[in-house]
Simulated scan of single mutants.
Amino acid sequence: MNSRTALAELPQIERRTLSETTYDALSDLLASGRLAPGDRLSLRQTAAALGVSVMPVREAVSRLVADGALEVAPNRAVRVPIMSAAGFRALAETRMAIEGMAASRAAAQRSQGQLAAIRRAEAAFRLLAESERPDGARAVALNRDIHFAVYAACGLDPLREIIARLWLKAGPIINLDLRAHPARLERGSAVRRHAEVLAAIEARNGPAAAAAIAADIDDAAQFILSRGGLRDEPS
């Protein structure tokens, strides 16, 4: 075996790692609402910001397009999709079912360590939400923390992966709205729903945990739709 043949058999570890790291970074931008619907994403600017070549960015973007989290416009520009009200309703209903399932399983499967993590996340969100001037960006991060602390306890990796992909689509709308409209925090519905989720998981009450997570998702969706920022596509 010559050196060229031997080198050809080596796995492209570094490139694969860069692609995964880039995918994770862009996923976080989407799930955290730092990219909004309609925002364009430059491959070159993204590569420069991450300190990588364009290739891993292109690979990560291709995966996110396949996930439905990004789209390629007719002019070849990469952008965050603009979702219709009908599409958002469908996404919210799907999340209610899938994330409710994860919460139900978390109530049955959670360990003491996982329960402690959920308690910490719930307390941190509640403390911020009840402060005099809650920071919207911080609220976004803490809201995601408590949801994913719950889902981490479900015991099913494929289910968590599905939820993560759903948040790629929902994040630009839900989290951007939470940043812009702290009234959602002032209403206290998120704090109440999170407390209900925690209590149900503490009691190992799966149906109650699923109902509380679904209600939290529905409350947020109804608030966003009530503001009229999303429009139904013409029939």
Rank of each mutant, 00 (worst) to 15 (best):
L10R: 13
W167C: 03
A212E: 09
G228I: 14
R133V: 10
G38V: 01
L26N: 00
T21K: 04
V140C: 13
L29W: 03
P158Q: 03
G229M: 12
M55F: 03
R16S: 05
K169E: 04
L128G: 05
A103M: 09
P182C: 11
A139W: 07
R79E: 00
A103C: 12
A90M: 07
R119G: 09
E233L: 15
D177Y: 15
E202F: 08
A152S: 14
P172H: 03
S84K: 02
S32M: 05
A107K: 08
A152E: 14
I174T: 12
E130P: 04
R34L: 06
D39E: 07
I174A: 14
D28W: 06
P134F: 12
G206A: 14
E9D: 11
S104T: 06
V197E: 14
N205D: 15
R126Q: 09
R119C: 12
L35P: 00
A209D: 11
L30C: 01
V150Q: 07
I118V: 15
A69I: 03
R179V: 15
R40S: 04
G100H: 06
P182N: 08
L166T: 05
E233W: 11
L166S: 02
R231C: 02
E14H: 10
T5N: 07
L198P: 01
S19R: 06
D67F: 03
P74G: 12
A209C: 11
R193S: 09
R76Q: 11
A31Q: 10
A220P: 04
A200H: 13
A73K: 08
A97E: 14
R120H: 15
Q12Y: 04
S42M: 06
L128Y: 05
G206N: 09
L7E: 07
R126P: 03
R15V: 02
R193G: 04
I162P: 05
G171R: 02
V52Q: 02
S62D: 13
D216I: 06
